[in-house]
Design a protein around this nucleic acid. Sequence first.
DNA 1: CTTTCATCCTGTACGGCGTACAGTATTTGT
DNA 2: ACAAATACTGTACGCCGTACAGGATGAAAG
Lengths: 236, 236
Amino acid sequence: MTTTAKISRRGPRRALTGDDILEAALSLLDEGGPAAASIRGIAAKVGVAPNAVYTYFPDKAAVVQAVVEHLLGQVNHAIVADENLPWTQRIEHLALDLRERLSAHPGAVSLMIGGPMDGPNALALNERLMEILVDSGLHPSDAARASYLLIVYVFGSIALEVAELGETRQARPEAERIAERRAGFSAIPAGTYPLSAAAASTMAAYVSTEQYVWGLHRVLAGIGGPPNPTELPPHR
Amino acid sequence: MTTTAKISRRGPRRALTGDDILEAALSLLDEGGPAAASIRGIAAKVGVAPNAVYTYFPDKAAVVQAVVEHLLGQVNHAIVADENLPWTQRIEHLALDLRERLSAHPGAVSLMIGGPMDGPNALALNERLMEILVDSGLHPSDAARASYLLIVYVFGSIALEVAELGETRQARPEAERIAERRAGFSAIPAGTYPLSAAAASTMAAYVSTEQYVWGLHRVLAGIGGPPNPTELPPHR
DNA sequence: CTTTCATCCTGTACGGCGTACAGTATTTGT
DNA sequence: ACAAATACTGTACGCCGTACAGGATGAAAG
């Protein structure tokens, strides 16, 4: 999607492209988290003086924003659409794929929720969700609301997940992490937090694929359910 | 909840309390966002040398974590419980109150989702949600899952909201903001994003109390609905 | 072909950050 | 009265983002 404009300028040729910088930033982000993705670090990685970066981006905020858009675009492009499946499964596929691909760059997740996220690729994701929802028969304005609800759920889940697991990638088995967490939760005082203490085992698995799809299913059920159920769905 | 231990030490008396630092940090956070809440800024605000802060907290991360816990505790304490209302309304009250009180400190929101959020006050919030959910008849383990879903929704919403509105408080009427956003969205190319362009008016109100409760109602409906609805709730 | 000049990149520098280290003043226990 | 422990200050180091000035480059203008 990066259109090579190829306009001829008047000075020396550029040693870099904007994408070089973005990819360098992204790899630094993956290795050392947001702290490592400094202007000076990026410049060193691509082999120029620190302030050479300002030829391509006006300031660091612009770099960050571009990195987010870059990542969002490549993720968005990598996820294939499953036409002619039930809408719930289409969204589930999309949501699971999003989680997997975004969690691969945990350092970037903090940056996403640190800015407006209103670039074209964010819009494309919204469009994509709305397509499925309108296809399912929802009125466009409800589809828009539902799309945002899904975005909140997906990005909220991933953000909390990254907050819990840290901003640099760690390839540890999920079961191991959960077991460790369960051990920590066994110390919850049952006197002050009786319900949490009783559900410690479930809470240990808060950050897991299973919990993610569980919550997603509830959200989908809420979206697909009757239009005004909250007035009286008495306690289960 | 801050237990004054009053143990006598051997050196000079402390000029500050830990809470002095936390409140200074919080007010700086409100005035100038996370960037303003620097160790040096906090120290200047309470009238000591920068490194005097390290008498009370080992490093900046500890200060941040303590600020989050502090805020979470005071918010948690300020929200009054409405017993003997339907569980959906009890949660709605809680969720609306949480949003209002946390949005009052937008600079702190970025810090919350930047760390694990597993302190006692976070646990207390979980306990509180679980109380309502178990009361409504949910099995404890499902209540735990539902509690986390709600936490994801509430904090995810607020995080995206802050990302959109900025990290320093702004007392502008909601309607004005939305109108401005709608004007910006009118430029969406209907060729590439037809559905988004058609729903631009709804999307302009993504960050609003109305959208927040709309999404919350769907989530509540999903929680209160049948246990396995996603297998076949065909397109509406 | 030569000159002009916009442009890219570098070197240097400034102010701010977190925080490590050493020193000094203050209070308590012996 | 003295010693030990503690709170705070002054100073300094290595990062950070980035402003500014100067030199190399190469296309456009003469």
